[in-house]
Design a protein around this nucleic acid. Structure first.
Length: 219
DNA sequence: ACATTAATTGTGT
DNA sequence: ACACAATTAATGT
């Protein structure tokens, strides 16, 4: 990892409201910045975690997998987020039960786990950050489970499209029905039928490998 | 520009 | 769920 002269300024800019300047200096001094391209796998299921990642730019999706190898999207991570899973793995030294895949080109800052305990004691903002992350991730999970259990696939599909549009900051999603089906743990035919229905209802426009999500109602 | 092929999407059973 | 039809994008000639 080459030393990045811009790292310092960039981090100060990104995290000025999250961490005190002292801590950001420590982040620069101890963290390693790594770039990932879309579709790259950051963490695989069963892998152990030896660095603590913080998302500096881009976005990442977090998935589980059942024994048949079928996937299910849990949630997205955005700038400033970290994964609660890794918080767990770092402290308890267990293996990851999730897979993390890059959604949009991403930069991650990797922190050696030894530093985490130091900072927990030294920096109030770090304590807040880790607790906040836990709490946010827990709520994300609960709401994911909620829609999973209580909503029809149609509602899940709409939620999925909305979330994806949000993290991509675009209403135009470049994705095929097959990929959607995999992330929602459904089948391609079912998704195609639902998409057709949504299209007739005027919620989406679609063409090959492209879905345009039309939602203007505030929420 | 046209033909061939592969991938994606649509529909009926 | 499966099979197949229809459509579209990609590639070669």
């Amino acid at each position: 990892m080459p030393f990045d002269i811009n790292c310092h300024d960039k981090l100060h800019e990104q995290f000025q409201y999250l961490f005190e300047p002292e801590l950001i200096n420590e982040l620069c001094a101890n963290g390693k910045l790594k770039k990932y391209l879309a579709e790259e796998v950051i963490v695989e299921i069963g892998q152990s975690i030896d660095y603590f990642p913080i998302l500096v730019s881009g976005s990442v999706k977090v998935l589980t997998e059942d024994k048949n190898g079928d996937e299910l999207l849990l949630y997205y991570l955005e700038v400033g987020d970290t994964c609660a899973m890794t918080l767990n793995c770092c402290t308890k030294n267990t293996k990851s039960t999730i897979r993390a895949v890059v959604e949009n080109d991403t930069e991650l800052l990797f922190i050696p786990i030894e530093k985490m305990e130091d900072w927990m004691i030294k920096y109030r903002s770090w304590r807040n950050y880790t607790f906040e992350s836990y709490s946010i991730r827990l709520n994300e999970l609960i709401s994911a489970i909620d829609t999973l259990v209580f909503s029809s696939l149609e509602e899940r599909l709409i939620n999925y499209l909305r979330d994806k549009a949000w993290v991509n900051k675009s209403n135009i999603l470049k994705i095929s029905h097959l990929e959607v089906a995999r992330e929602l743990h459904s089948s391609r035919v079912v998704i195609s039928r639902l998409m057709k229905k949504l299209e007739n209802e005027g919620l989406v426009k679609q063409s090959r490998n492209k879905i345009e999500f039309l939602e203007f109602s505030a929420k």
